[in-house]
Write a protein that binds this DNA or RNA. Structure first.
Lengths: 340, 340
DNA sequence: CTGTTAGCGCATTCAG
DNA sequence: CTGAATGCGCTAACAG
């Protein structure tokens, strides 16, 4: 069903049909109604490709993210999807599995697909080969979760958040506080959060034990278990994300430690599921859905004004400490063991 | 950067450039190399819209699903995404929030977007207004998770799976086995699983207590708690999905019941997260990623042969019972209480 | 093996 | 306010 058919049946020109749809005001009410009626009868739907070809705007946004298996990104994508439809845009998501070459491939794919703009969560803005590509192409984009002075970003203050979390644990009496992270090199978020941990520990005058890095998620529980059975095991764990926190809790149980009785665990991300667990996850929450929504809105706004987004458009969204049940005051004897 | 520019710089015709890309064999190796080199230098990328307009094929698949907040569908979408890129397709996902009018809107949107085919998870194939629309449009589609004799579906035998689960619980000594479900009317999966429950109970010669329906997820835990504190409370719960199972476990704890000590809980879906919980979730696993993958492959195959998929192309994928830690033999005294 | 050309469906000048 | 004509970038005949 093309615009031609509608024009013919309505006895007007294609230009009039086009106007009736795109500039209803520029057409006599009578002819507009006529066109609308005929279009409806013929079940006419404007052809998106033709329109895109002609206007050079696809009204499609590309989304590049590491994985959908982490609810954090699923929640974010949901936010993106909602905001996109609300703004009249469709989205094409591509997952990269935290792999740099996949990031590049994804951007290439999306650019070839004629997207008007991109939202991406990259491993590390500094080392991403995809970003220069994007800038060269002149396509507007915004980074979500990442933080970098040279790029437009929508994120939270992960460093400050973790530092605060350390302070809270210290107030609960914890002294041996360890951090658990995925591969540090694979994510600037993990690096920021680790910095926050170090900062918080330094401020409390505590020595920070070595980072517990669990590169491959499959073996995370085993790796953690051995650490938790060590002589001077930590009394509290700060985990770089909620998935790790959940696995840490499991590792604790497998090691015969109860949470929060013997071990306190704090997560990061604020995935919805955390509230339904037992113990309910204590975590630093990010507004995942809002991160997605704001990314879309920033992008749409930039595209409307014809400019590509600059770094100074970056948004820092508020985080929060969600008090759950996986954290408690430290046992007296535990700390004694630490001191002695 | 258009094909014209490449042709000009390479000193050949646009047709040759087009062939060099689409039918490399139909071009002299020398000219092909030349074209490729020039195209690379000019950073040329074929324009997807123009190609789509010309060929009437977008190489884009639409995906309609209820939500990404349930890891089941996130896992499925991940499977869809992988298979799609592997097959040279992009995807446009749209979420419906289990709302029928949103399903219709989504299909409309996607059809207007020129997708070549659709994968959808609808509330109920029988009552969906979106499906007739699709058939009318002649666009190939496949349903995922849904089951219906008149549509091509990729799914598992939810009814049989739940009936088997009941049998297992009975073998563990359970007699008072209840089913927990979301809004039954909102999903044919829930209905199938409930039928399986009734069947399993009947086969065991047990009376099935009324379905515990928790329409609004937010209040699920409260609703469940009250049920679990009733005089003749169930000793085992079969939940229509893993998210409900997780909430049920929380409700049990809030009611002072331990899982699996006082209450056994079985889920449905097999979300990855379930294995990391404590207790690890006992559940009926579906191959979520494979459901997505097969849906894509079926669709691509159908599109290649030019036909729209028929109901007889439906696939029934294998499910499995994943033994976790949320299920145990019933306490003797609990059953006595039931008998007395 | 390569070039010329038409047209996919639409938005947009420019005339009237 | 409306119509005729042009071209967005590409592929598929067809001709050479």
């Amino acid at each position: 069903m093309s615009i031609q058919a509608v024009a013919a049946k309505a006895g007007v020109s294609v230009a009039t049909v086009s106007r009736a749809f795109n500039f209803p005001g520029k057409v006599t009410p009578a002819t507009r109604e006529l066109v609308e009626r005929v279009a409806h009868e013929l079940n006419y739907v404007p052809n998106a490709s033709a329109r895109t070809l002609r206007t050079q705007r696809s009204r499609v946004l590309g989304v590049v993210l590491p994985t959908l298996l982490n609810p954090t990104f699923a929640e974010c994508l949901q936010g993106i999807a909602r905001a996109a439809v609300a703004g009249g845009y469709a989205i094409i998501p591509v997952t990269t599995g935290y792999k740099l070459d996949e990031e590049e491939r994804a951007v290439h794919l999306l650019l070839a697909g004629n997207v008007d703009g991109l939202i991406l969560v990259v491993s590390n803005p500094s080392s991403s080969a995809a970003l220069p590509r994007l800038q060269a192409a002149g396509v507007p984009y915004v980074l979500a979760y990442n933080r970098h002075p040279d790029h437009p970003c929508v994120s939270v203050d992960g460093e400050g958040a973790v530092a605060d979390a350390v302070t809270r644990l210290v107030l609960l009496g914890h002294r041996r506080i360890a951090m658990v992270s995925g591969t540090l090199a694979a994510s600037d978020r993990a690096q920021q959060r680790y910095r926050g941990y170090l900062k918080g520990m330094a401020e409390a005058g505590l020595a920070a034990p070595a980072l517990i890095e669990v590169p491959f998620v499959e073996t995370a529980v085993d790796a953690l278990s051995s650490q938790l059975q060590a002589r001077n095991r930590p009394t509290a764990l700060i985990c770089s994300n909620d998935l790790l926190a959940i696995r840490s809790i499991r590792a604790a149980h497998l090691s015969g430690l109860s949470v929060p009785g013997d071990l306190s665990v704090v997560g990061f991300d604020g995935i919805a599921l955390g509230e339904d667990l037992t113990p309910a996850l204590t975590t630093i929450t990010q507004p995942n859905s809002d991160i997605g929504r704001h990314s879309v809105e920033l992008l749409i706004q930039a595209m409307a004004s014809g400019a590509t987004l600059q770094a100074d458009a970056s948004l820092l969204l508020p985080h929060a400490f969600r008090d759950g049940e996986s954290c408690a005051s430290v046992h007296e004897d535990d700390n004694n063991a630490a001191i002695s």
